[in-house]
């Protein structure tokens, strides 16, 4: 049907034009702003980023916190996804919705909830007082609280990815393994886990991208010493008014995230072929 196909192409082009004007064009502007010094091409902003101890430290911390949060989210997410996938088919949807329900809830509100949980008047502090840990526990405004917030933020996405890949497993393969005498653990480590790796990598890549890009979590749960790259880019742009520096910082973040996503994508494809 060439007539219908042409009609759909026209509709598609309208959408492309909209996104080109309001997504690609601003993005191109960030890039040119980061490469511009008084009207001429210059790598000065990038040189500033990579030669500054402050920015390199923040860059390192961003990668470190994103990596730790990703690993924790994959471990917890796998346990939860496996739990859901082994429920009766009729109740899996309900368990899934309960476990990913935070996704539908305002992140600002959830982070406020974490501020209560981790504050020195909160339940964690009260419990540790009951257990006679004498000194005041202050969990807020630290790397710890930022990681807790990030894990809570990205966990639903990880669960969704791993659950989807677990659900795609052919039950006949698992039955065959069990019938041929393999134990439950052996079947899991030799069949289920390897076959679910694409979901693990897909979930891991989303988790890393969201964690590395996070802006709000350090704003609410972090202190002045736990700023991440996004916060630095915001401060440079809005607080200091240095658009070139802010743009360069945000482009560095973009490039790192894309590289990590590509690496995860390669792993995911390998998993599919294995």
């Amino acid at each position: 049907m060439p007539r219908m196909k042409r009609f759909y192409s026209v509709l598609g082009w309208i959408a492309i034009i909209y996104m080109a004007a309001l997504f690609l064009y601003p993005l191109a502007n960030v890039l040119t702003t980061s490469l511009n010094d008084n009207g001429s091409f210059s790598l000065e902003q990038y040189a500033k980023v990579f030669s500054s101890d402050v920015y390199m430290k923040v860059l390192g911390r961003t990668m470190w916190i994103a990596a730790v949060s990703t690993v924790i989210s994959i471990v917890l997410g796998y346990a939860l996804a496996y739990f859901i996938a082994t429920r009766r088919p009729g109740s899996q949807g309900l368990w899934l919705m309960l476990i990913i329900s935070p996704m539908f809830m305002s992140l600002t509100v959830r982070l406020y909830g974490w501020m209560i949980v981790l504050s020195n008047e909160g339940p964690v502090a009260a419990a540790s007082k009951l257990l006679h840990f004498s000194q005041e526990v202050s969990l807020l405004f630290s790397n710890f609280s930022v990681i807790v917030g990030i894990v809570h933020y990205v966990l639903p996405f990880v669960v969704l990815n791993i659950y989807t890949s677990l659900k795609k497993l052919n039950p006949a393969v698992l039955e065959a393994s069990m019938m041929l005498g393999a134990s439950g653990a052996r079947t899991f480590w030799h069949i289920t886990f390897p076959l679910s790796l694409p979901g693990v990598f897909a979930g891991g890549s989303i988790a890393f991208a969201l964690a590395a890009n996070t802006f709000l979590v350090p704003v609410m749960l972090g202190g002045p010493k736990t700023n991440l790259l996004s916060n630095m880019a915001y401060n440079a742009t809005v607080t200091i008014g240095n658009f070139g520096l802010g743009s360069a910082l945000s482009i560095v973040l973009l490039i790192i995230v894309v590289i990590v996503l590509v690496l995860f994508g390669i792993l995911e494809r390998r998993g599919h072929h294995a």
């Binding site: 997504f23 690609l24 601003p26 960030v30 742009t237 973040l253």
Partner: peptide
Amino acid sequence: MLESFFLGPLIVPLVTTGIGFLII
């Protein structure tokens, strides 16, 4: 590639997008 382009705003850091809007 077109599909990735339309999903792009999910991948590009929100601060990058934010700075872009501010600039234009």
